[in-house]
Amino acid sequence: MADIAIPVLRLTEARTPDGGFAPAFLDELRRALHEVGFLQLTDFGADAGQVDELADVTRRFFALPLADRLALDNRASPHFRGYTRLGHEITAGRPDAREQLDFAPEQAPLPRDEWDATYRLLEGPNQWPDASLPELREKVLAWAELLSGVGTELTRALAAALGLPETHFDAVFAAAPHWFGKLIRYVGVEDEDLQAQGVGPHADWGFLTLLLQDSTGGLQARPSRSGEWVDVPPLDGALVVNVGEMLEVATHGYLVATVHRVLPCRPGTTRQSIGFFWSPRLDATLDPVPLTRELAAHAPGVTETEHNAMLPRFGDNALKGWLRSHPEVAARHHADLLG
């Protein structure tokens, strides 16, 4: 384990009274995401009680009878929305010991003959437990609205921290950013194949990830500049923020989509988290930004492997990830896309 602390920033310190970004905040933000790829963000604007209420309604969702959760089975959704059973999402080629509910902007699906690109299959309706837990939809969508605002402010701060106009990235998010979210419960099980990982090592394929974790612990990051695992400890009332692949593409590797994992829970225990993946429009292409000479000297290019190409158009990068992580949905609805 590397001896690296995860930086903590307060969003209320991002701007000065005149409305501009505070240079000290920009320096800390750039340093955190360049050197570690992770930070913790506090004072981000949640209403009093909002975090606790969201955590509570999420717990109540996973406490519903399995039949109620399976009524939202993601295998019935060609858009990868809904409930994924324990052990049926794949990361790094192995099943994860988690169950979850995936959601994204509510959209009418396009008929296949009207697609302008294959990634349009990701547009569609969510699945909510309105009959058994009607308040879940309202609280989750209120959270998504809040974090869309946080994501927008962080994106503008990052642009300014890179020496660009703060509105530099606005165009790729305009009109229809394709964020997505996950309510997640990790379950400690006896089965060794499942217990091997809560979530296997991976990088996120969006722009920025904003994660609310409980007090259990188990999240670890592997900063590329150290190559060793670092604990991302729970911090009450904080969001964990990390770089996604689209931001790595946009900065030519100055900011790296840091690999991370979740350790398995002990048998008989659980861990809960709520992920929000701030992402541009599906049709948006992230071209490398013009970096200053000083920053460019520390931008080695994107990190690609034979198993994970970095695709600059977000819809292509997202579809790659969904097809890989949910093979049952892919095989049932999109077998023609599987190589």
Rank of each mutant, 00 (worst) to 15 (best):
R261H: 11
V302Q: 11
V172Y: 00
D3P: 03
L154S: 04
V51T: 13
L282G: 00
G37A: 11
D204K: 03
H88Q: 15
R225K: 09
P129N: 11
H260D: 12
L154P: 00
A131W: 05
R271E: 15
H307L: 15
L54N: 07
E53C: 09
A117D: 15
S325K: 09
R281Q: 08
L219E: 03
H307E: 14
A174Y: 01
P105A: 11
D56V: 06
K139S: 13
H333T: 08
E53H: 11
A48W: 01
L26H: 05
P65L: 05
P129Q: 10
A46T: 05
V8D: 07
G124K: 02
A161V: 06
G237H: 11
A330Q: 10
L41E: 01
S132W: 02
T216I: 10
L239A: 11
L141R: 08
A48H: 13
G82A: 09
L162I: 10
A174F: 01
G49L: 13
A14I: 11
R324N: 10
Y186I: 10
A257W: 00
P177A: 07
V289R: 06
L122E: 01
W179D: 00
R31I: 06
I184A: 09
D113G: 05
A71K: 07
A71Y: 04
T251H: 02
W229Y: 14
P17S: 08
R81N: 11
N317F: 00
R324P: 01
V172T: 04
S325R: 14
T269E: 14
R266W: 04
G227A: 12
D287F: 08
E138C: 09
G45K: 09
A196K: 12
D102T: 11
A297Y: 06
Q127D: 08
G237Q: 12
